[in-house]
C-alpha cells in the first residue's frame, strides 16, 4: 500500500507540434520523455522503504543498473489495456504502423513480447508497483558496497509480493513465482532498449538531455 501511494503521477510526452513528423521527431520526443521520467524515477526510488538508508553510492549503483527496466516496465504496464500498441505516455500511443514510420519499430518489436507476457498474467497495479521496486533492488550492479543491506531490501520487497499474493490471489499459489519469472525477459528487453538509445546517441542526430545521457553512459 505504501508503494501504491508513492507511485508517481502520469507524465506527458508533449511532442513538439512545430517539428515535422518522422524519426527525428519521434526519437526527440522519447528521449525528452525518458529524461523527465528519470527525474521522477529517482524521486520515487527514495520513497521505497529501505532505499534511502542505503549508502548514496549504492543508491546510485542500483538506479544506474535498473533505470531502463523501470522505464520499460512502466511502458508495458500502461500498454496492458491496448492491442499491439505501446503507451509511451497517455498522449503518445504508438501502433506498429506509426512505429515503422518513425524509426521505432525495433523498440516496438522488442517490448511487445513483455506486454503479451503480462497480459497473459493479467498483472494488477499492486503487482506492478511491487515488481518495479523489486527490479530496482535486484538490479545486479557490479559495484554494490553493502551487499547485505541490498539483500535486506530485496527480502522486504519479496516479502511484500508474497504477502500481496497470499492475501489476494490465493487461488494460484505460484503467482508470485510467475511474476518473478518475467524478470529475465524484462532485463533482456531493457538491454535491447539501452542498445537502441546508445546507438542513437552515437549517431548524434537527436538531442538528449544531460540526465538521460548520464544514465546511458553508466550502462555503456
Amino acid at each position: 500500500s505504501h508503494l501504491l501511494v508513492v507511485e508517481p503521477e502520469k507524465i506527458y510526452a508533449m511532442p513538439d507540434p512545430t517539428m515535422p513528423d518522422g524519426d527525428i521527431k519521434a526519437l526527440t520526443t522519447l528521449c525528452d520523455l525518458a529524461d523527465r521520467e528519470l527525474v521522477v524515477i529517482i524521486g520515487w526510488a527514495k520513497h521505497i522503504p529501505g532505499f534511502s538508508s542505503l549508502s548514496l553510492a549504492d543508491q546510485m549503483s542500483l538506479l544506474q543498473s535498473a533505470w531502463m527496466e523501470i522505464l520499460v516496465l512502466s511502458i508495458v504496464f500502461r500498454s496492458l489495456a491496448c492491442e499491439e500498441e505501446l503507451v509511451y505516455a497517455e498522449d503518445y500511443v504508438v501502433d506498429e504502423e506509426h512505429a515503422r514510420l518513425s524509426g521505432l519499430l525495433d523498440l516496438h518489436v522488442a517490448i511487445l513480447p513483455l506486454v503479451r507476457r503480462y497480459k497473459k498474467l493479467s498483472m494488477e497495479r499492486e503487482e506492478f508497483v511491487t515488481l518495479k521496486a523489486i527490479a530496482l533492488a535486484n538490479s545486479d550492479s557490479m559495484h554494490i558496497e553493502d551487499v547485505e543491506a541490498v539483500q535486506r531490501l530485496q527480502d522486504s520487497l519479496h516479502e511484500a509480493l508474497q504477502d500481496l499474493e497470499g492475501a489476494h490471489n490465493t487461488e494460484d499459489p505460484r503467482r508470485a513465482g510467475k511474476l518473478l519469472m518475467t524478470l529475465p525477459l524484462l532485463r533482456q528487453t531493457a538491454a535491447k532498449a539501452v542498445q537502441h538509445f546508445y546507438s542513437i546517441k552515437v549517431q548524434g542526430k537527436v538531442p538528449m538531455h544531460k540526465l538521460f545521457l548520464e544514465m546511458l553512459e553508466a550502462k555503456a
Binding site: 527525474v39 529517482i42 524521486g43 543508491q59 546510485m60 538506479l63 544506474q64 548520464e214 553512459e217
Partner: peptide, 15 residues
C-alpha cells in the same frame, strides 16, 4: 561520481 553528477544531486535533494 563526478561523471554522474545529476543523479548524485537528485538523490541528495531531500524531496
Amino acid at each position: 561520481k563526478e561523471k554522474h553528477k545529476i543523479l548524485h544531486r537528485l538523490l541528495q535533494n531531500s524531496t
